[in-house]
Simulated assay, not measured.
Amino acid sequence: MDLFQSATKADALPLSDHVLFKGDDIDEARAAVAEVYCDHRLETIGRQPFAAQHNRISGKALSINVMTYGAKTLIAPGALEGFYLFQFPVRGHASINNGTNRHEIGGGTSGVINPEASTSMIWSEDCVQVMLQIEKKALIETARAEVGLPAGTSLQFAGANKLRNGEGRAFLGLLNFIMKGSEGDDALLGSDTLLGKQLERTLMVGLLQTQSHNFSSIVASNTGPMPRIIRSAESYMHENLRAPIMIEDIACAAGTSVRNLQGAFRNRYGRSPMTVLRDLRLELAWEELSNPTQTTRVTDVATELGFFHLGRFAEIYRKKFGCTPVETLRAALPTEGFRPF
């Protein structure tokens, strides 16, 4: 099926060899969808009979889904939390409310739902959508690596986007290629191969290039992908967040001089490599303090990440996150037996 062409009712849905659910019981459909997405409210509107089908192939960080409910349908999942959801109707249309982001998709336009905002949707009768479910962490990491999303910056999509220009057609062409290549049991996604990983990465980059978001102006101003020096340096940083590395180590791993490394980071981010490394470590500290065990202590988290001056650590942590490390830990642990240090 060409995703630019509206499907007729008689057409078989894409990914027909990978049916997750098919049936006319609304409670069974809700349960099946909740297993792979999240719990949600599902109601029919009008008299059209309910006839759901959900086809799906899964990769490591994303899945491609084709869905229809037959009837005009209200879907209200609240906040998706752990994933972004790209939607492109190949038949019919949908009204999307995602926090303050409200838009209509269909007729060649698409949209992305942000994970943090409460969401509700109304799909028209016989609406068929191709959707990408992408792990929040994976898409943000891709945005950092490919288009320079600053550490600590949220990625927020907005509005409907036409996909009939060159980049849009190329993006949908890749989706077509993957779905057609997944006929039978030979799914291109999900296999632990270099091709599978690269296809996922390319889909995420395509999403960043074709959908409107709060970083679109930076994406448009970039003349190409992130320089190899920065990609290599950031990869080394991520692998060594707990290690006592110096700027010379990072430059060596990136295959360049310290001066060139500093210049590349200044041009890309307006910050030094060591400041970027510090922010990455602060984000890991926040993750560990927000998801603690009974033995988690601020001192241990800080020193393991190279912050040996606890007063300075608390100061830069509060500047970045608006609260102290102790407050983060206290909010995540029961009061009884709370021992921050």
Rank of each mutant, 00 (worst) to 15 (best):
K319V: 01
P244V: 09
N291S: 13
A254Q: 06
E287W: 14
L282I: 08
T324M: 03
N291I: 05
P334F: 02
F338N: 04
R266K: 15
R231L: 12
T296E: 03
E239Q: 15
I229W: 01
C323K: 14
E336P: 06
L277K: 03
M237Q: 05
R330W: 01
E283Q: 15
A233L: 10
I229E: 10
T296V: 01
R271P: 11
R271W: 10
M237S: 01
N240Q: 09
L329T: 06
I230S: 10
A253E: 03
T295N: 01
N240H: 12
T303N: 14
E287A: 13
S235N: 13
L241K: 08
S272D: 09
F265C: 14
G255P: 07
T256V: 13
F265W: 14
L329H: 01
F338C: 04
F338T: 02
R259D: 09
A285C: 14
D249N: 15
L261D: 09
M237R: 07
G255D: 04
M274N: 04
T335F: 08
Q262C: 12
P292K: 07
T335I: 06
L305A: 07
R278C: 08
S232K: 15
F321R: 02
S232I: 02
P334C: 01
I230E: 12
I316R: 00
